[in-house]
Amino acid sequence: MALLINCPVCGKRNGYEFRYGGEDKGPRPDDESLSQASWCDYVHNNNCVAGIQKEWWFHKDGCGAWFTIYRDTRTNLEADTSADTSIPEVK
């Protein structure tokens, strides 16, 4: 099934133009309270949900932006594109 991804810069494009960047696991854990187990969990373990998950994508053949989308892993279709398709803020 062809995956179409809505890039915030270039619009809807063929999924083959993108590289998958993994599940969005939220911000990096705070260093002070970090244990080896929680760091290992953050780096290596995934939720692998059967349903809608928030994930990172990189537009490697296009604008070079990293952004997040919601994708339904059961249908391989992007879901709810208006909610949070965004490039992270530059600090």
């Binding site: 270039c10 133009e17 537009h59 490697k60 053949d61 070079g64």
Partner: peptide
């Protein structure tokens, strides 16, 4: 401006 593959090249 459009970014994308042209003859498979970014």
């Amino acid at each position: 401006l459009l970014f994308g593959p042209f003859s498979h090249v970014p």
